[in-house]
Simulated assay, not measured.
Amino acid sequence: MSAPLLTVWYNTRCPVCDAGIRRQRWRLIETVKAGRIAFRDINVEPAALSAFGASLEDIRRRLHATDAEGRLLVGADVAIALWRMTPGESWLAALFGNAIALPLTRFAYDRFADLLYAWNRHKGRW
């Protein structure tokens, strides 16, 4: 089997992140079964993206993914890549990932991720 088109690294200890990824995995079930996308728990492989300079805390703070060419995607760019692959959600990628909206999308994603990360740390989810 060839490498997945997208490997998404996420934090299963975050209930919001885990629920979001479970929803996406369900929506992408055929793509997952075909091996075109993979979802990986960073808590199981904390050094998985160290070659990119991404720490465990970086990945707990924001989604990270690698694409088929070995490039690293972070934050909103991961969400947009997932939407592009998800049946019925490509319109989200077009809306939030276009050249005009993308800077605002990244800013909004990063602020939400910062708040979620702080909340998880406060709740002791590490």
Rank of each mutant, 00 (worst) to 15 (best):
M1S: 13
M1V: 14
M1A: 15
M1D: 06
P4M: 00
P4G: 02
L5N: 13
L5G: 13
L6A: 01
T7A: 02
W9Y: 13
W9Q: 00
Y10N: 03
Y10F: 13
T12I: 08
R13M: 08
P15C: 01
V16A: 06
V16H: 09
V16G: 06
V16P: 02
D18M: 13
G20M: 03
I21Q: 00
I21E: 00
I21P: 00
R22S: 07
R23N: 03
R25F: 05
L28Y: 01
I29M: 15
V32G: 02
K33P: 12
K33G: 14
A34H: 01
A34C: 05
G35S: 10
G35V: 10
R36M: 11
R36T: 13
A38R: 14
A38F: 04
A38K: 12
R40I: 14
R40G: 10
D41W: 08
D41F: 01
I42S: 01
I42T: 02
V44K: 12
V44M: 15
E45T: 11
E45C: 11
P46W: 05
A47T: 06
A47D: 09
A47E: 11
A48R: 08
A48V: 14
L49E: 00
S50G: 10
A51P: 03
G53F: 06
S55V: 08
E57T: 15
E57R: 15
D58G: 11
D58V: 04
R60T: 07
R60D: 08
R61K: 10
R62V: 04
R62N: 08
R62K: 14
L63H: 10
L63I: 02
A65D: 04
D67I: 01
A68E: 11
A68Y: 03
A68G: 08
E69G: 13
E69F: 05
R71K: 15
R71N: 10
L72I: 02
V74K: 00
V74L: 04
V74C: 05
G75D: 11
G75K: 09
A76G: 07
A76I: 04
A76P: 02
D77Y: 04
D77V: 03
A79N: 11
A79Q: 05
A79M: 12
I80D: 02
I80T: 00
A81Y: 00
W83F: 07
W83R: 02
R84P: 05
R84G: 05
M85C: 08
T86H: 07
T86R: 05
P87K: 08
E89Y: 15
E89Q: 15
W91D: 09
L92D: 04
A93K: 06
A93S: 14
A94Q: 13
A94T: 14
A94S: 08
F96E: 06
G97Q: 11
G97I: 05
G97L: 10
I100M: 12
I100A: 11
A101M: 14
T105E: 04
T105F: 06
F107K: 12
Y109M: 02
R111V: 12
R111T: 12
R111M: 14
R111L: 08
F112D: 04
A113T: 05
D114S: 09
L115R: 06
L116H: 07
L116S: 14
L116M: 12
L116F: 04
L116P: 03
Y117A: 08
A118M: 09
W119S: 09
R121E: 05
R121W: 04
K123F: 15
G124S: 02
G124E: 03
G124K: 00
R125P: 06
R125A: 07
W126F: 15
W126Q: 14
